[in-house]
């Protein structure tokens, strides 16, 4: 038997109050169709919930989606809590309505990539693939 390649596991979450889940769901499906296991945690998640789920599910990466403008508070908080729990190796990325000049700040805070509106799904999928392999 050929050894089965290790599955990439990704957590897709909507932090904060924002209910716009079109993007999160489309990305979740695209990652599934690319052969990954996607844990979708649904709406209105606190950073603490997201980090706990990521650890229990032992994911390679976390995708955060926010369209309400709360990203500067919520995204870095996820990275901080992961580090605190000794799971800093989990890759965190963000997507949504993110002003251009917030992107470098998010990256400095440990968000590995930011995907704005119009990002091709292929680009997102290959990013997660790479993140999964590196983990």
């Amino acid at each position: 038997m050929v050894p089965i390649p290790r599955k990439i596991r990704v957590l897709i979450a909507k932090p904060g109050l924002d209910g716009h889940d079109r993007g999160a769901k489309v990305v979740a499906r695209a990652l599934r169709d690319a052969g990954m296991e996607v844990i979708y945690t649904g709406l209105r998640q606190m950073p603490e919930d997201i980090v706990e789920a990521a650890i229990q599910e032992d994911v390679d990466a976390i995708g955060l989606s926010s369209l309400s403008g709360a990203h500067m508070t919520l995204f870095p908080e996820v990275v901080r809590l992961l580090k605190k729990r000794g799971s800093g190796e989990i890759v965190v990325v963000g997507g949504g309505i993110i002003p251009a000049d917030d992107i470098p700040k998010l990256k400095r805070a440990g968000i590995k990539a930011v995907f704005g509106p119009g990002t091709p799904l292929g680009e997102i999928v290959s990013f997660f693939k790479k993140a999964g392999k590196g983990a």
Binding site: R29, D33, G35, E37, V38, Y40, G42, Q45, E57
Partner: peptide, 14 residues
């Protein structure tokens, strides 16, 4: 077909 999965049970246990 794809070998992938969306695992959503956590939503209900959130």
């Amino acid at each position: 077909y794809t070998g992938g999965a969306v695992l959503g049970d956590r939503i209900r246990m959130a």
